[in-house]
């Protein structure tokens, strides 16, 4: 036993850096494929084997992106898109959380509201666009409304399911300690649904980015979606790809921000996160 302990103690400083080096290597492994493909394409176009007009090589896209950034255009477009997503996500997440909580907690509200909401969910959200434009005009309000609708449903479903799935056993502990309805919600129910709620918010945010593209393609004077349409009309695939890359970066950053903000609240979770 003691020999084993000593052996483990000797091993420890050796093993730690090796493990972190390995996870570091795993983290950068994801970059290998896109970089190899980019270099390959760049080489093919440079050698004249492939025509780079419809699928411009990385150097051209990079130059376009740099040009957009230098002129301040990229910032304007990205800012407009982010504002729309933020406003739509805020409204949709709020409505989804409140309605999800109500239908999850009260059977009356569930039988009253849930069938209608499920029917509305079956409508492809883009189908709302003409109506929203008639109701809210062609400017920001209709775009924000469309994004809010897209964000609403995953959040609503996630919260309602989480509340219905709360463990009876842990609620009973709350009852044994004679918590009031409010205290039960604050001290037991909310913490219990927190992980599922955050997952719902993340999928909502993803859909928010999907719908902002739809909204901006259908008519906008600024925003990354507008940049897409602009690139198409001017026959500039490099602009389109620059916009697509910006979308990818923004979406990833927004999701990362959401995860970073919520991580401290989930430190208690007993998950296999580190191993998987």
């Amino acid at each position: 036993m003691s020999v084993l302990e000593i052996a483990a103690a000797v091993d420890e400083p050796e093993r730690r850096p090796a493990a972190s080096r390995r996870s570091y290597r795993l983290a950068i492994a994801g970059f290998v494929l896109p970089i190899v493909l980019a270099i390959l394409w760049e080489g093919l176009v440079a050698a004249g084997i492939a025509n780079g007009r419809l699928m411009p090589p990385p150097s051209v896209v990079g130059r376009t992106l740099w040009g957009l950034a230098a002129s301040g255009e990229l910032l304007t477009h990205a800012g407009a898109t982010l504002w729309r997503v933020a406003a739509g996500f805020g409204l949709g997440a709020l409505a989804g959380t409140v309605l999800g909580a109500v239908t999850g907690a009260l059977p009356v509200a569930r039988s009253l509201l849930d069938p209608t909401l499920q029917a509305l969910r079956a409508i492809p959200s883009i189908a709302w666009v003409p109506l929203f434009i008639l109701w809210l005009g062609i400017f920001e309000a209709s775009k924000v409304a469309l994004i809010a609708v897209g964000v609403f449903f995953p959040v609503y479903l996630g919260v309602a399911a989480a509340i219905q799935g709360i463990d009876r056993k842990i609620v009973e502990v709350g009852r044994v300690f004679r918590l009031s309805r409010l205290a039960m919600t604050r001290r037991v129910l909310l913490p219990a649904i927190l992980p599922a709620w955050i997952t719902a918010l993340r999928s909502g945010l993803g859909l928010g980015f999907m719908f902002v593209v739809a909204a901006e393609i259908m008519g906008a004077s600024e925003g990354l979606g507008y940049l897409l349409v602009d690139g198409q009309q001017l026959g500039r695939p490099d602009t389109i790809i620059a916009a697509i890359i910006s979308f990818a970066v923004l979406g990833k950053l927004a999701d990362g921000l959401l995860v970073a903000i919520t991580r401290p609240f989930l430190a208690w979770q007993d998950t296999a996160r580190d191993k998987l």
Binding site: K169, I170, F177, R178, V188, D270
Partner: peptide, 20 residues
Amino acid sequence: AEPRADVGVIFQEPRLFPWL
């Protein structure tokens, strides 16, 4: 008729709050 403050319960499982 309902849980009381002067009655303590220990369940079959620990039933701890994982977030505390």
